[in-house]
Design a protein around this nucleic acid. Structure first.
Lengths: 114, 114
DNA sequence: ATATTATATAAGCAAATGGTTATATGTTAA
DNA sequence: TTAACATATAACCATTTGCTTATATAATAT
């Protein structure tokens, strides 16, 4: 089966974007659940602007989408992206990060939206 | 089928390494053929030290191996690397780069070792 | 031995990266 | 309308990156 090819320059851009522990973890997490900025802030122990800057890069590259839900902005994987097959493939090599969600819940920090 | 998981920190390191157009192209090229430094220099139009620095990073990460053959040092993909399955998987999404080899040959710049 | 060729290493530099604090924007609640 | 909360943007800074030139090391050829 033939996989659609991704321009090597574009691929390098995506890999550079994912070549950061925080962003790579975010994407892996988003593979299971959607998250809002404030949840990421709790999880990654960095400032809120730092998180906003990371998700912005992911959004600019088309890897994630955002939806406002009340005062929160929920980020989710963009499965329509033309590089999604590549990303998905990558994710298969990474360990599940659901334990982070459980930690959030244990601390009562999971925001309450469906 | 279960894929062996790669520590997310290690994966980020590898992706950052491959998140560079030159190195990503090198790895894709090495997926088909071995190359020496001087060939890479011709292909990438950067200085010889720049190429040496790139291959060194790939070597330090265990992605490639080197063999001296006379005055040349031949670089090849290290298929024994524990991240090779990930890399291999990535490569499947990239366009073949054999035309670069053909360009080399057309210019008579392919070095003569088997 | 000496010159030539191939590669590696060192040092320096401009640009990019990822964080911070301060501040602006937008939504909700009182 | 005002306060509180969630997020984004701006400005700044230290570190990293990827190149360059200059030089060192190693093998080959004369």
């Amino acid at each position: 089966m033939e996989l659609p090819s991704i321009d090597i320059e574009k691929a390098a851009t995506i890999l550079k974007l994912l070549g950061d522990k925080t962003r790579l973890t975010m994407i892996k997490m988003l593979d299971s659940h959607d998250y809002c900025v404030c949840e990421f802030v709790e999880i990654f122990k960095v400032s809120q602007p730092a998180i906003s800057q990371h998700v912005r890069k992911l959004k600019d590259a088309g890897l994630v989408g955002e939806t406002r839900r009340g005062q929160w902005i929920i980020y989710s994987l963009n499965k329509k992206s033309d590089v999604f097959p590549l990303v998905q493939n990558l994710m298969n090599h990474l360990p599940n990060q659901d334990f982070k969600l459980q930690e959030l819940e244990a601390q009562g920090l999971r925001i309450s939206c469906d």
